[in-house]
Simulated assay, not measured.
Amino acid sequence: MPAPTRRSFLALGALGGLLSVCGCTDDHDKNARPTAEDADRPLRQRQLAATDALLADYDAVIAASPADAARLGDLRDDVLQHREALAQSLPASSPAASASASTAAARTVAELAASERRTAGRRLADLADASPALARTLASVAASGAAHAAALGDTGPIADDGPPPSASPSPTASAAPSGSASPAAMRAADVEALQAALAAEHAAVYGYGVVGAFLPVGPQREDGRAAYAAHQARRDAWQRLLAAGGASPAAAAPGYRLPFQVKDAATAGRLAAHLETQLTAAYADLCATTALRARAAAALRECALRAARWGADLPALPGLAAADPAPSASAT
């Protein structure tokens, strides 16, 4: 092979410089591909703006009603945790600075409750376009916002979630399959997550059978019956969806071991709260799917609301925070 000449060195040097200036390298092309983090960035920024506006509403209502400061302060702390979860991978920013730049609309607790409900709807509006990880966070934050709104007296529907306006808002209505996604198009991971949710519903149906046996006649027993029917309906809906997609729905276990002994109305209510809280984790995982995301978010919200009604101390991020061990199933 002949030795390279000075002219060939100059030519190679010029070509290398041209590639360097143009950035035309294989490594550059690979690194230029957008990541899920890049795609999520506009959604996260939009959600941060909505969170800062909600924080400004809290500050305005707390300032106008000092008597409610303690109660509202706990809810505001949850919203700060929402902000932290939504701000992941974004440059650090101060919520106080962002909030002070806007004019708070809420001046009463009722207006603050409505603001919580509207903001929960904004979370769900971005659900379809979010990455699986961000979708789980958005659904959890929306469920928390719905629980906040209910605690403040606003139990209105959450936009972009649940049954259509013309449908009855009963617990069983939103449990039925809806949407345009075909069961046959579900990925294996979606089927696996749905099977896990179905198994959790089997346990919940069993658990509510125990709960109902210890509740006295009255509003509590009616709440227990409504929850029992809702979980039966959702269990049946998931079974139909799996069967339509060619999968064998997971069967209920022969028996279930409860996390503690139920012996009166108080422990029955505690078990109901425990069951609903555990279900939020199953539905947070289901929110990471594509075909079932909206329905999973609806289920997550309903479980969070029922858990709160049964007296559960909901975490700021239902379904994402560490929870007690779920009731385990064992053959009897």
Rank of each mutant, 00 (worst) to 15 (best):
A11W: 13
G13V: 03
G13C: 10
A14E: 06
G16A: 15
L19I: 13
V21H: 03
C22P: 04
D26Q: 09
T35D: 00
T35L: 06
P42I: 14
P42W: 07
R44E: 08
R46D: 15
Q47N: 12
D52S: 06
A53W: 11
L55M: 06
D59H: 05
A60H: 05
S65K: 08
S65W: 02
R71E: 15
L72I: 08
D77A: 14
D78L: 04
V79T: 07
Q81V: 06
L86I: 13
L86A: 04
Q88N: 06
S89I: 01
S94F: 07
A96T: 14
A97I: 14
S98A: 15
A99W: 03
A105E: 03
A106C: 12
V109E: 13
G121A: 05
L127I: 05
S131Q: 05
S131M: 01
A133N: 00
R136E: 12
R136L: 02
A139P: 09
S144P: 12
G145P: 06
A146H: 01
A147H: 12
I158F: 01
G162L: 04
P163T: 07
A173G: 11
S174W: 03
S174M: 10
A175E: 11
A176L: 11
S182P: 04
A184R: 15
R187E: 15
Q195W: 09
Q195A: 04
A197D: 14
A197F: 00
H202A: 05
Y208P: 05
V210N: 00
V211M: 06
G212C: 08
R221C: 09
E222L: 11
R225C: 02
R225P: 01
A227V: 03
A229Y: 04
H231D: 13
H231E: 15
R240P: 05
L241S: 12
L242E: 11
L242M: 14
G245A: 09
K263D: 15
A272K: 02
T277V: 02
T280N: 01
A284I: 09
A288T: 05
R293H: 06
A298D: 14
A299W: 04
R301M: 10
E302W: 00
A304Q: 10
A308Y: 06
P315D: 08
A316Q: 09
P318D: 07
A331Y: 06
